[in-house]
Each structure stands twice: as structure tokens, then as C-alpha cells.
Design a protein around this nucleic acid. Structure first.
Length: 275
DNA sequence: CCAGCCCCCTGTCGGC
DNA sequence: TGCCGACAGGGGGCTG
């Protein structure tokens, strides 16, 4: 569920309750949620470390400790929140990892579908080195984006979902960025014009910034760190709007499958192209 | 290189 | 009502 805007919103919400807290110990009930190191080493290493800061890389949450980084990927249904030990939340029934903090607080990782992963590492580049540029950083240049499109014989939607091209876009914001650029999701990446690339380079950032502004999309599982819902889903142009009227032209939004993912587009604003 | 399929899981929804 | 398949904000792996 969570893409860059959702993860960024969670990170911002965790900063206040988490930074400065010390991890006392940890508990888990699903081995596969702990990616690495082993549960025994994980618990031994994390205990006693204080949270120095919290950040984000692509869809990964980075909790910076004194000697390691605690990394969390929410995948489809993960939630991360800080609670007082006695607090009870709806999401608690799916908590699979819990970190006990000083001050009688807890950092809880809840995950209905159990796809989420938690890592502890002192070598972030080994874990995240394969990722492409951050779309909202200076490192995401138009020149680099154009270069990456050259000669690629796959759909532009598949291209945008490739985390090595640009990191943090998922199914929602790929559809939204392509709509804003007027580009059909099945267009060949390598066939886009320089003008297309320039527009898409802009609309990727616009779509993601709109998502952050509205604090992420709470369609199903995603919640902010404080448990509240985001509002981004109320501002989509195409995602989840099949058979509804295009906000731009009034045509009926269509849904197809591209790159094995449900894909929403306006057949009028994003016409198929003949090469 | 890339499309297409599988897997990891659980919950929800629509059709019969 | 119950059952059953399809599908869901992700990503890794395999085949052809």
C-alpha cells in the first residue's frame, strides 16, 4: 500500500515520539518479518541503542540508532506506530514485532499480510545500494531520466515501477503521474519524446508532492503514525476511479492490466499512440 | 532485456 | 447464507 508519500508521512509522524528514545528490548512472533540479522543477534544488538534520527529512502523507513540503522519496509499492509505500553489500538491484533522503549513506550510493527520486513544493519549501502535516485532530490535529473528511457522496450508504467530507475513510485502514483503527463501507461518507454520525458519528470514530482501534502492515501490498510487516515485518495485523478468521469475531460476512466498491475487511465487525455 | 508467471500472506468483495 | 475466485499501495525469483 504505502508508496513514497505514505512512507514520508509515517516518518514525519514518528519523529516526535521516537527520536531520543532508547530501545530496551524487543519481541516478535513471526520469524520471516525479521529479515536480518537472526532474531537472536537482532535482539542483542538493538538493545541499549538510542534513536538519533529518522529518515526515509524510497519506501524504506530508516531509524538511525547509535551503531546501526533499524530499517522497516511496510510492503502492502504494514503499520508502524509508537504507543504507551498500556495503549490498545485496532491494529494491535496484527503486531508481529515490538520494540520496548524507555518511558514505558513501545514501537509496534503491525502487518496483516506479513509481507513487511524489518532489518538491522550497519551497512545501508549494501541493503539499499541498488535503488535509483530519490524523485524529490536534486539527484533525480531530467538528463538522467531521459538517459534511462533510451532504448528501453517496455511500457512506461513498468519503467516507473522499477525502483532502480527512480525509487519510491508505486502503482498509485505511477498512474497519477502518467495521467498528469497525458501519457498512456502502455507507451514504450524508449519511444517517449524529449518533451514527454520533461513533462513526466515534472508530473512524477507533482503527483508525489500532492500525495505528501494530503498525508498519503488511506484506501485500505495505510494509516499515519498517529493512527489517522490520509486524504490523498480523495484527490486522485485516475487511481481507483474506474467508470467514473475524468476530472479533466469528463470521459470515462478505464482500467486495464499493465505489468501485472491494475492500471487506471483516461482514454481521452492519455491516448494510445501509433509509432 | 523483458513479459509473464510464481511466491510470500490475509482480508474483502462480487458473483453464483 | 455460504462458497470460491479475483484482487489488493510491494518486491524477489524463475522461465522462455
Amino acid at each position: 500500500m504505502p508508496e513514497l508519500p505514505e512512507v514520508e508521512t509515517v516518518v514525519r509522524g514518528l519523529r516526535e515520539p521516537l527520536v531520543g528514545r532508547t530501545i530496551i528490548g524487543m519481541w516478535h512472533d513471526w520469524d520471516k518479518t525479521l529479515h536480518s540479522p537472526s532474531p537472536q543477534e537482532f535482539a542483542a544488538r538493538v538493545a541499549g541503542q538510542t534513536v538519533r534520527g529518522i529518515g526515509r529512502r524510497a519506501k524504506y523507513i530508516l531509524i538511525e540508532l547509535e551503531h546501526d540503522v533499524l530499517v522497516v519496509h511496510l510492503k502492502m499492509s504494514g503499520r508502524l506506530y509508537v504507543a504507551s505500553a498500556e495503549d490498545v489500538y485496532d491494529a494491535d491484533r496484527w503486531v508481529h514485532v515490538r520494540f520496548d522503549l524507555d518511558g514505558d513506550k513501545q514501537l509496534r510493527f503491525s502487518d496483516v499480510r506479513k509481507f513487511g520486513k524489518v532489518y538491522l544493519t550497519d551497512d545501508l549501502s549494501r541493503l539499499l545500494g541498488h535503488l535509483g535516485p530519490e524523485p524529490l532530490d536534486q539527484s533525480f535529473t531530467l538528463a538522467g531520466f531521459r538517459e534511462g528511457l533510451k532504448g528501453r522496450r517496455r511500457s512506461i508504467k513498468a519503467h516507473l515501477l522499477d525502483q532502480e530507475i527512480v525509487a519510491g513510485i508505486g502503482n498509485i502514483y505511477a498512474d497519477e503521474a502518467l495521467f498528469r503527463a497525458g501519457i498512456h501507461p502502455n507507451c514504450m518507454a524508449g519511444e517517449l519524446t524529449d518533451e514527454d520525458a520533461e513533462l513526466l519528470h515534472l508530473t512524477i514530482r507533482d503527483a508525489l508532492l500532492a500525495g505528501i501534502k494530503h498525508e498519503g492515501a488511506s484506501i485500505n490498510w495505510y494509516r499515519k503514525a498517529d493512527g489517522g487516515k490520509g486524504e490523498s485518495q480523495n484527490h486522485f485523478y485516475v487511481y481507483g476511479r474506474m467508470n467514473l468521469a475524468c476530472r479533466n475531460c469528463g470521459a470515462t476512466i478505464n482500467k486495464i492490466r499493465v505489468a501485472q498491475r491494475g492500471t487506471h487511465y483516461c482514454p481521452n487525455c492519455q491516448p494510445e499512440r501509433i509509432y
